[in-house]
Nucleic acid binder design. Structure first.
Lengths: 349, 349
DNA sequence: CTGTTAGCGCCTTCAT
DNA sequence: ATGAAGGCGCTAACAG
């Protein structure tokens, strides 16, 4: 192995018979330095592949150009999409992204935060876990002068900018769409009561029903805890075996909706003709399954972009008390699973 | 904002009337230091929330405890699973993971490598892009004394350990399974000719056919380029409209298989009774779709774990010439899409 | 057992 | 226009 020994400013200075500070300044084209000197130094640096020792620079400037990013789950279409947007944006601005996951466990999240802080990221992007009810581990960042930007799953226990999706409106539109398609008895498989997004979506669901004078029933609302396919499957079964069963189901997320679709398929209950189904998040597979699942797109990539831009801005301005809330609009994606229940089947979505 | 000013070794030394080096040594319980001193220093440090300045430590030791990780695509079930394993493992060993994506574009990959190198990761985990045919950007790492570990999509142009899946064997088992289920004319939607994994899978496909004296046909092999659902859809159509159409299709990856399933569903061709379909990678949705898609599991999480462990080991031992190949066995996951074609239909399809 | 010293590579006053 | 010097915080070799 030919390990190139890295050349330093000192080497340049020695070889060129100038001082280290001149070399340093020449490389950054400091106005005080003579053009000739600049040219010479730059040429020499180029020739010998001089690269500033980033560790020294970081040390000197106390910053790393690394941003921390914590999500509940990495293997998750929405979050990986956000991460993708964050990484691409960070790269454009000369930052790296350090990724970690909380597995929706508070202690894991706390550890991740500690690690991030210890490895000295310049700021933090976080979507909190379901268990996160207070935010001491987050205020730690602020106290160290490192800005935090929250996205999607947020808490109000910490002052920070927040990038979220208008969950209320997204849910409202989804349910309104079901109503317009002629569904009369709309159920909701909702998320946890402690999670803001879930509550907002449930609120949107309820408001849409009220605004359109639709029948409502407590029996049509089921609380998902694990938010997975199985729950969708089981709750669907439960809903349909009760008396006065619903004829449409709005699910907290696509994964739950897939479970619903699975049950319906097994029972040979026609979608969308007997029952309409709509999800939330617009997972990739929503367009792959048959029937295509209608869903509410959350613009994950843009969320990652915007949150990252915001964080970089805060870092540059050394802002720590920003509380701006950036709310992205959702986008209703209509596919077969909610096609007008009266009409004949559509071909596609 | 109450920005705590960070306390340093110097502060401890001054306050306690000892030297900086004693303070430093006491904190690491150096055997030379008196127990009393250690106790005093530790207590003081604790009380004042002393945290070593990681930037200074890194600078001093020329290492960051950060590992670079580059994949073609982040929003991809297999890769995000690998990343998940890598992150969890890294965390256990005190390392962070810096994630980047190449979008399967060589220039992006090169830039990502440069950035990683510039931000001074201690080592690199990489799954190369489809375009990567030589590896100058990778040997840069080795030249700087930073080990590289390749996984899944690899090149032999660089000496490094490689963690791969036995693509040949996985494909062989998949096709053997189809044969055992009674399928007679097995087609293969293969991947690109430049990509090693694709070739291995195609080789496994062919060998299985030969070993079992099965009919073969060049017309049953189609080259996917984009490796997406659409290609699956279109090639399936093409295969079935030719004369002597196949009665089973082995797909380079699940996504392509989903396209195949979509076409078959649209055409009301029964799966698995008229046609058997098997994928590769065992995406989450393989178990969600109906009929469930048989697939070959690649153990992504384990791959991430193992590659990361290997990299950490190389870093610790300062090994740069390791060429070990760690080959994981795949796991055939049988679902409805390949159920015996002779038996009566399952519940769904 | 503890202190002194030197230095990692870079940046930045301050002086000339 | 350039150089000298100090220091960021920590570690480690060398003295006592």
């Amino acid at each position: 192995m030919t390990e190139k020994k890295k050349i330093t400013l000192k080497d340049i200075a020695r070889e060129l018979g100038i001082s280290i500070s001149t070399a340093s300044r020449a490389l950054k084209e400091h106005p005080d330095i003579a053009d000739d000197t600049i040219k010479t130094v730059k040429a020499f640096a180029e020739k010998h592949h001089y690269v500033p020792n980033i560790l020294a620079v970081n040390f000197r400037k106390s910053r790393t150009y690394n941003l921390g990013l914590i999500v509940p789950e990495l293997v998750h279409h929405f979050f990986s999409t956000v991460i993708s947007g964050a990484i691409d944006t960070a790269k454009k601005h000369g930052y790296n992204i350090l990724v970690s996951q909380s597995n929706d466990i508070l202690s894991d999240e706390t550890v991740a935060c500690r690690t991030m802080l210890a490895s000295s990221v310049d700021g933090l992007l976080i979507s909190i876990s379901n268990e996160t009810l207070e935010a001491a581990h987050l205020t730690n960042f602020i106290e160290e002068g490192k800005p935090v930007v929250q996205f999607d799953k947020i808490t109000d226990h910490i002052q920070s900018p927040k990038v979220i999706v208008d969950d209320f409106e997204g849910a409202y539109q989804a349910v309104k769409h079901l109503i317009e398609q002629g569904y009369k008895k709309i159920a909701h498989l909702r998320g946890r009561r402690e999670v803001k997004n879930s509550n907002e979506r449930a609120r949107g669901y309820q408001q849409a029903l009220i605004d359109h004078n639709m029948e409502t029933s407590e029996n049509w609302i089921k609380d998902c805890m694990a938010i997975n396919e199985e729950e969708g499957y089981n709750f669907c079964k439960e809903l349909l075996s009760g008396d006065n069963p619903p004829d449409a189901i709005f699910c907290i997320t696509d994964l739950v909706a897939f479970g619903v679709l699975k049950y319906l398929k097994e029972e040979k209950i026609a979608v969308p003709h007997q029952i309409g189904v709509i999800g939330f998040s617009n997972w990739k597979l929503a367009e792959i399954v048959s029937p295509g699942l209608s869903s509410v797109d959350q613009h994950g990539y843009e969320m990652g972009e915007i949150a990252t831009l915001k964080l970089i801005e805060l870092i540059k301005n050394n802002e720590l008390d920003n509380q701006e809330v950036i709310e992205l609009k959702t986008n209703l994606i209509i596919r077969e699973s909610t096609a007008n229940k009266i009409e004949k089947p559509l071909t596609i979505g």
